[in-house]
Simulated scan of single mutants.
Amino acid sequence: MKKRLFMLSILGISISALLAGCNPGGGPGSNLSLGMDAIEAQEYSEALTCLNRALAEGEDKRLTYRGLGIAHMGLGEYDRAVDDFMNSLKGSNGLVGKLDYDINYYMALSQFKSGDLDAALDTYNAILGLDDKQADAHYLRGRIELLKNDKTAALADFDRAVELKSSDYDLYISIYEALDDAGDKQDGENYINMALQKNGRMTDYQSGLFSYYLGKYDEARQSLEAARKDDESDKLVLYLGRSYEALGDINYAATLYREYLEKDPDSACIYNEEGLMYLKQEEYMKALTAFENGMALNDPSYNQSLMFNEAVTYEYLLDFKKAAVLMKEYIEKYPDDEEAQREYIFLSTR
Rank of each mutant, 00 (worst) to 15 (best):
M1V: 10
R4L: 14
R4C: 07
L5Y: 12
L5E: 14
L5S: 09
I13S: 15
A17D: 10
A20T: 15
C22T: 12
C22L: 10
G35T: 05
M36H: 00
I39V: 06
Q42S: 15
E43F: 09
E43L: 12
C50E: 13
L55H: 03
G58H: 10
M73K: 13
L75N: 04
Y78L: 08
R80V: 10
R80S: 15
A81M: 12
D83K: 13
D83N: 10
M86W: 09
N87T: 08
L89H: 02
S92N: 11
L95I: 11
V96L: 07
L109A: 11
S114Y: 15
G115E: 00
L117H: 11
N125K: 01
I127F: 02
L128N: 02
L130M: 11
D131T: 00
Q134L: 09
A137N: 08
A137L: 00
A137S: 04
H138D: 00
L147P: 10
R160L: 09
K165Y: 11
S167M: 08
S167F: 12
D168H: 08
D170A: 14
I173V: 04
S174Y: 08
Y176F: 11
K185T: 02
K185L: 06
N190G: 12
D204A: 15
G215F: 03
Y217T: 04
A227S: 03
A227T: 01
A227Y: 01
R228K: 14
D231N: 12
E232R: 13
L236K: 01
L236I: 00
L238Y: 11
L238I: 07
Y239A: 00
R242W: 13
S243W: 04
E245M: 14
A246K: 12
D249F: 04
N251C: 09
A254H: 10
L256W: 07
R258N: 12
L261Q: 02
L261E: 02
D264G: 01
P265Y: 12
E274V: 10
L288H: 00
A296V: 04
N298E: 07
N298H: 11
L306G: 00
Y314T: 06
L318F: 07
L318H: 13
K333Q: 15
P335F: 02
D337L: 00
A340F: 07
R342T: 13
I345C: 14
